[in-house]
Design a protein around this nucleic acid. Structure first.
Length: 514
RNA sequence: GCUCCGGUGGUGUAGACCGGUUAAGCAUGACGGCCUUUCGAGCCGUAGAUCGCGGGUUCAAAUCCCGCCCGGAGCACCA
């Protein structure tokens, strides 16, 4: 009992604000731990993960899964997080300078700061060196079989004849590749695996190929190289060299783990723990890079930040906070089943974050009706809270004169002839083109529809870019111009939006969610 | 066609490896109520899954075994 008393006394001696701080901190900490289940074979301080995007497009919700999970797991265990641009295909999946920086921006925004960053196009000599080594050791060979021929042979578990050439001859061919003795497609380095492997896709996979630099130059390397590593080669070498302990990626890479396993075994390296998550689909939308790229090229989308896209840059523009994305991704975890998520979940998570910071305004959209206010003193000044649960914010002061207010058609047509509460103003009877003051009794207002309005002589134009890329026009309080660009607001009874452009006489915003 | 990986309420996920007091937890969504001068937030409550289907093993299966169906991925000199 004395102990209890003592603890009680101690707690009650802490000021309330301090107490809530402690409480929140504890809650947060617990939340974090709850969020991420343990990674297999993770040792504190020794976890190294990587996120390996191809800089040929912008990051989207799907890519954010690998990024967030890789980053957060590294941090959870006090390890390192590496970003590695996989830009080794100047032909089919060309990288573009603008995406290197765009991806970095996206990652920073997501809160996935990296400890190290690399570009594979700057590591070419490394891939060459290991290739030469593999060839010398007889683990890889240079084949002149074209892909068709190779395919038909390998399907029957048969080798290309040059698989068994001596390492010296292979080396000669390798040098011929490097020096330009072959044209595109005439030779390729393959890794010896197991021609009997049940999955033909695993059998003797290609590691390096020739790309004519005169026809396909690289945004960073230019025309310097004509032999480029394929994904599995560059990735296998890098993961080993960079000391990656855990690879978190989509299940489409499952066979790549098996393929690369042959290299690791042959070189005597230890393959990292690979965790694969299932396909993430989005209700009613596409998460495919190629769909996004094509849509933009065809002009179907206005750009990477088109509000219909699930790119990070579009979500950011719309007012989705990175923490909402993070929470959603954490909730899905790394399980391997195929998930079709609804954006509503993201919106719900996001609303909880932005609700507190969003100042409230009245905005009326679509078809509008002007109401003459009858029965009010010549001029009315009302003050409305900027946020219902934070009275400390400066009030919105709005003047209304007999010139009247503007309301939306849905509120007008639905209530014509009835009494309504014009929020903050009073109770009125809605008439044709006007409104007659009844009283200003809040109790009386309880049973009435509450509708919002904009003062005609204190309003500015607003345009909202909606999530279907249409524009919604209307009027809003002129006081909104004091908002900072990029701030979240809520138009009461309408939706949340992010302010994009503020001019003295108009506002441009982007719709976030209801 | 071949090779993988999945299949728990509308959606996402926990439980499955070590089968039994959880005949299914959480979140989001839906519905209802309270509060609120927002159809937001918050609080309270309700509905919703016989755990893809069929069989087997067992005293006992979402959990183990087999078959089937469905979904996804891979089968590129893409990443």
């Amino acid at each position: 009992m004395p102990v209890i008393n003592e603890v009680c006394r101690e707690i009650s001696s802490i000021p309330l604000e301090k107490l809530s701080e402690i409480y929140v901190d504890e809650g947060k900490k617990r939340q974090e731990e709850l969020d991420l289940p343990d990674l297999p074979k993770a040792v504190r301080g020794e976890v190294v993960t990587r996120f390996a995007p191809n800089p040929n497009s912008a990051l989207h919700l799907g890519s954010s899964r690998a990024a967030i999970l890789s980053h957060d797991y590294a941090k959870k265990y006090g390890g390192r997080f590496i970003v590695r641009f996989e830009d080794t295909d100047p032909r089919l999946k060309r990288s573009d300078m603008k995406f290197y920086s765009m991806v970095k921006e996206d990652l920073k925004w997501l809160g996935c700061e990296w400890d190290e960053i690399y570009m594979q196009s700057e590591r070419m000599e490394i891939y060459y060196r290991f290739a030469e080594d593999a060839i010398k050791k007889g683990l890889a060979y240079v084949t002149e079989c074209d892909s068709q021929r190779f395919r038909s042979l390998v399907l029957k578990s048969m080798p290309c004849p040059d698989r068994d050439l001596l390492p010296e001859e292979q080396l000669e061919r390798w040098n011929k590749m490097l020096s330009g003795g072959y044209r595109e497609g005439q030779a390729v380095v393959r890794i010896k695996t197991d021609l009997e492997h049940p999955n033909p896709a695993v059998r003797d996979w290609p590691a390096l190929r020739i790309i004519d630099p005169e026809r396909y130059s690289h945004p960073i390397a230019g025309k310097k190289y004509r032999v480029w590593p394929l994904y599995n080669w560059a990735s296998a070498v890098d993961d080993h060299l960079m000391g990656i302990t855990h690879i978190i990626r989509g299940q489409e890479h499952f066979v790549n783990m098996i393929r690369q396993g042959y290299v690791y075994e042959a070189f005597g390296w230890a393959y990292p723990q690979a965790v694969h998550y299932g396909k993430l689909m989005i209700e009613g939308g596409s998460l495919s890079k190629s769909d996004i790229e094509r849509g933009i090229k065809e002009g179907k989308f206005s750009g990477y930040d088109d509000p219909r896209l699930a790119t990070l840059i579009a979500l950011r523009r719309r007012g989705i906070e990175p923490e909402a994305i993070r929470k959603m991704i954490h909730e899905m975890g790394i399980n391997t089943n195929t998930a079709t998520v609804s954006l509503d979940i993201l919106y719900a998570l996001n609303r909880k974050i932005i609700d507190g910071v969003s100042n409230r305004y009245f905005g009326v959209f679509g078809e509008l009706h002007r109401l003459n206010l009858e029965g009010i003193p010549g001029q009315l000044t009302v003050s409305l809270p900027r946020h219902p649960s934070d009275p400390s914010r400066p009030k919105r002061i709005i003047n209304v004169n007999s010139g009247g207010v503007v309301i939306e058609d849905r509120d007008y047509s639905g209530n014509l002839g009835k009494e309504v509460r014009l929020i903050g103003l009073g109770n009125f009877k809605l008439l044709d083109g006007g409104a007659r003051f009844v009283n200003n009794d809040l109790n009386y207002a309880k049973g009435l529809p509450h509708i919002h309005w904009v003062s005609e002589n204190q309003s500015i134009d607003i345009s909202v870019l909606m999530d279907d890329a249409t524009e919604l026009r209307g009027k809003t309080e002129s006081g909104i111009t004091y908002e900072a660009q990029g701030s979240h607001v809520q138009f009461e009874r309408e939706f949340f939006a992010k302010i994009e452009v503020i001019r003295p006489d108009s506002v441009y915003a982007v719709y976030t969610s209801r």
